[in-house]
């Protein structure tokens, strides 16, 4: 008998574990990867790339669907509130009941939205923290300090070369015997076009360095800023959840009050037998009327 009970409890437990597992498997997720591409992206484009990755996720789709439901629910709340305030008598009670149910649905939807938003914020924060760790560990590929001397030498070489180009051309081609090479002629034609395109790329808003309070910052600093932003978003979400909890408390109190009123009205309608005071029954016991 005991064994049968234990087996039954175990079956129930395993069924609930399977159910929880299935529910988790169906939960909308966003799994961004700290890819090499993300690490190498310009800091100014990083946040947009993460946002784009999120928009393509199941979590974003769930948030969108929840938002659509909430818009409909909020619109219905206004109508129900107006109806509950305008109704009288038994109809008023029914309208208030409907209004309470609608508020409860709204709270459920908003609570679900907060859960989804918390998941998004936590995933985002984790992603930025991992990115920051990687950039700090391996360094920003864009500004490797060990490459600085090479970049300086290359810049110096290019500057020296540009200064000597005319002199070299004069020495080689001004003698009349030698013609300008095909490379030089073609290069000059393309150089102006390339310069214009490079200027356009440098001035492109998607290629600008990120700014915090009007000051340009590096990738590490910008990632720290994004992590702090995620922290503040989480704190604001906590506050919104507190508001939601107070709303739920009010709905519960309203429901209690409504139930109380309904019970009182029912009692009044049914009527209670009138019980007289015990002293009025003394005559039955003493034999005196």
């Amino acid at each position: 008998m005991n064994a049968a009970r234990v087996l039954a409890v175990l079956a129930l437990l395993s069924a609930s574990v399977v159910a929880v597992g299935q529910a988790r498997a169906q939960e909308p997720v966003w799994r961004p990867a700290v890819s090499e591409r993300l690490v190498r992206l310009p800091a100014g484009y990083l946040e947009k790339a993460v946002e784009q990755d999120f928009r393509d996720s199941g979590l974003a789709a769930a948030l969108e669907a929840n938002g659509a439901q909430l818009v409909g629910q909020t619109a219905g709340l206004g109508d129900l509130q107006a109806a509950a305030e305008a109704a009288e008598g038994a109809v008023a009670e029914e309208a208030q009941h409907q209004f309470l149910i609608a508020k409860q649905d709204y709270l459920r939807l908003m609570g679900h939205r907060h859960d989804l938003e918390r998941r998004r914020i936590e995933t985002q924060r984790t992603l930025y923290e991992r990115l920051l760790g990687r950039v700090e560990r391996v360094g920003d590929p864009g500004d490797d300090p060990t490459l600085a001397p090479l970049a300086e030498k290359r810049s110096a070489a290019l500057a020296r070369f540009e200064n000597s180009v005319d002199k070299v051309d004069m020495a080689l081609f001004a003698r009349g015997g030698a013609e300008e090479s095909r490379y030089s002629a073609e290069y000059r034609k393309h150089a102006a076009a390339i310069e214009g395109l490079v200027d356009a790329i440098n001035a492109h808003p998607m290629n600008t360095a990120p700014e915090i309070d009007g000051e340009t910052v590096g990738k590490v600093e910008y990632l720290r800023h994004l992590i702090a932003q995620a922290e503040t978003e989480a704190a604001l979400l906590d506050q919104r959840e507190l508001v939601l909890a107070y709303m739920a408390k009010l709905v519960a109190l309203d429901a209690l009050a409504l139930a109380d009123r309904a019970a009182a009205r029912e009692a009044e309608d049914r009527g209670w037998p009138e019980i007289r005071d015990v002293t009025e029954a003394v005559g039955f016991f003493t034999g005196r009327p």
């Binding site: 030498k153 070489a157 020296r160 000597s164 002199k167």
Partner: peptide, 16 residues
């Protein structure tokens, strides 16, 4: 290559 401009870019450096 960029450690020694004169040696690497011999043609330009010699004319210069």
């Amino acid at each position: 290559a960029f450690a020694d401009y004169d040696l690497t870019f011999l043609a330009h450096a010699s004319i210069e």
